[in-house]
Design a protein around this nucleic acid. Structure first.
Lengths: 356, 356
DNA sequence: CTGAAAGCGCTTACAG
DNA sequence: CTGAAAGCGCTTACAG
């Protein structure tokens, strides 16, 4: 009946060497082959040597898919990125992926449109039996969070938090960052401080604004104006124009991300013909490398990127290991102000805080 | 003996609902469930309805890992990225991943250090039984190319070519791009044109330089000087400094990538106090969005990014489908010059070519 | 259209 | 330390 060969491709070029092939050649059992390729399993040196020799001769390497099926661990982490046009993310994605690799995990990458529902993508990810999910600035509804929880898949949000869901998150202390900026601008003698938000419903943008308001209050100021940039270059440009299309334009602008801040700066200088920081100060958030370029010299808030990534990896792995774990954790790491020349400094401030 | 339950987790929270569970509830066979979730399979409407109803009730979705094992198709494409610090790649990676998603494929992402061997990473990818591999500006030895070929895994190189291997590639016509720049600079009345290379052994950088030399020759010029930037910001800065640390500095510089060109521009303006383009012209390659910013206005060569990605996807999918296919293909797509203000123009050139 | 049965390539208790 | 056997959750000829 030849049932055993039915699913083989038609004598294809692909040499699917299996552990059985290796076992046969080495004169050992399939179990012995498996043990040889399982770190920590008990195999005698003699057996191991025979297996390795046979494996080398046949060009065998274990089939991770089959292994995943039987162990119920895919060693894949689903990574969902909402958008990569922020210069800030690619670097983090690289660090994250390499860190996961080092831990023996792999990155299954998905993109969502900003603001679009994560639903479809999440379904696909779950079908691939990922061991965990890390979301980069994507918004997760609590329904979906529940879905993941029901399947026992830990989720870690990066650079976002959700209030109402059992989801871990790691971000910088956005409120503290905003506060730092608010105090700095107030101390710098600014009178009319405006905020350019990212996406309105992003926790990141909200928290930074909240901090700004608090910091300004400490200096006796209220927020003077606000506009929404939506985290895009165009949006930021329009926001900047809107802020100056009024009788009392701001004398300082805090922008929710460096990416947008660069666009704001360009718009102020080249479209509105303003001098930065003489006419108006600009402060960003993220401290992206380009902000340090001589053309921009952007004052910004620096997140501890590597630590944040390390923390996200630690969180996801600990929850994978634990099974029934200690529940979600929220981590907010400390930030610091990087003072350059795009914002007027408080008297006596010598800019020594500038690491660049 | 209860052997059937041995591998189940200890009554975990994870509800691994299988097709058998659904079949039981729907009162049909496991085959019927499978067919319901296989597009194009023959199931009656009545059966399909029963299955869908049961699946919904149980929260079932097919296990892609198990499916991969039996079909010998993982529907995963391994994507290897050499480095993401070039602003040019993140966008392409996103486009690529989304295009693959649309075709029902998924992205398994890996990073290599620039210049580091792809060996380890490639081994891991192959274990995951990816259906194909796309490499972003990574260098592939012909040994490894052979390994993939032996396993029947098609490989497509993006933005790189290899001479001696049976590997498909898609890139822009780098020689033509360089030629365009050479002619443009010669026509612009420049006398001493220098080149800032990327990584010396990258086909991309070599081809762009070759084109430059050809274009200059058409205008009666030879390449005046060269330096190596290694595709990094720091490397580019040092290259710029080196080019001006000589008796006869260049009056024009063609830089192998926009990413580096921005650093060169900043270095010229802010460190060497030169005026661009009055003292020296700068031309890049890639036409990254930031190059259009008012602070830079970088003249550059634009690759048809979307077409290149589409082409890479087409190539890889066609080779997956074909099994024994028509062999590797090399695609080089046409480019065009984007004229802005960072380089002196030939007399009579009105810059109308600038799309921005 | 439908179901019973075999098998994808592995791991892992179990019993030596 | 080692092997025989069962099973992970699917798909797919085969025979109705």
């Amino acid at each position: 009946m030849a049932a055993g060969r039915r699913n083989r491709p038609p004598a294809g070029p692909r040499g699917p060497v299996t552990s059985i092939d290796v076992a046969r050649r080495a004169g050992v059992s399939q179990s012995a082959v498996s043990r040889t390729f399982t770190p920590g399993a008990s195999v005698s040196e003699a057996t191991r040597a025979k297996v390795m020799e046979a494996a080398r001769a046949l060009g065998y390497s274990p089939n991770a898919i089959a292994r995943s099926l039987i162990t119920r661990r895919s060693r894949m982490i689903g990574v969902i990125v909402a958008y990569l046009d922020n210069h800030y993310y690619p670097l983090l994605l690289e660090t994250l992926s390499q860190r996961l690799q080092r831990e023996g995990y792999h990155t299954l990458l998905f993109f969502t449109q900003t603001g679009a529902p994560v639903d479809t993508v999440l379904q696909e990810i779950l079908q691939y039996q990922v061991d965990g999910i890390i979301m980069f600035s994507a918004v997760l509804s609590s329904d979906l969070a529940d879905l993941c929880a029901a399947q026992g898949i830990p989720v870690v949000l990066f650079n976002r938090t959700v209030d109402d869901a059992a989801v871990s998150s790691v971000s910088s202390d956005n409120v503290a960052g905003g506060r730092l900026v608010g105090r700095f601008l107030a101390a710098g003698g600014h009178a009319r401080v405006a905020y350019v938000a990212g996406v309105e419903d992003s926790s990141t943008s909200r928290d930074r604004e909240r901090g700004l308001v608090e910091g300004l209050a400490q200096g006796g100021l209220a927020l003077h104006a606000r506009a929404v940039g939506g985290y895009t270059l165009d949006g930021a440009r329009l926001a900047a124009l809107a802020l100056f299309d009024r009788a009392d334009p701001p004398d300082a602008i805090f922008v929710a991300s460096d990416h947008m801040a660069l666009a704001v700066l360009d718009t102020l200088r080249f479209e509105l013909r303003l001098s930065v920081p003489d006419d108006v100060s600009v402060v960003g958030y993220d401290a992206i490398p380009l902000g340090a370029a001589p053309s921009y010299r952007l004052t910004s808030v620096r997140q501890p990127n590597d630590e944040m990534v390390a923390e996200a990896v630690r969180l996801i792995l600990s929850r994978i290991g634990a099974g029934e774990d200690g529940g979600p954790e929220r981590v907010a790491l400390p930030v610091r102000l990087v003072v350059r020349e795009s914002a007027r400094r408080p008297a006596g401030h010598d800019g020594s805080n500038d690491p660049q």
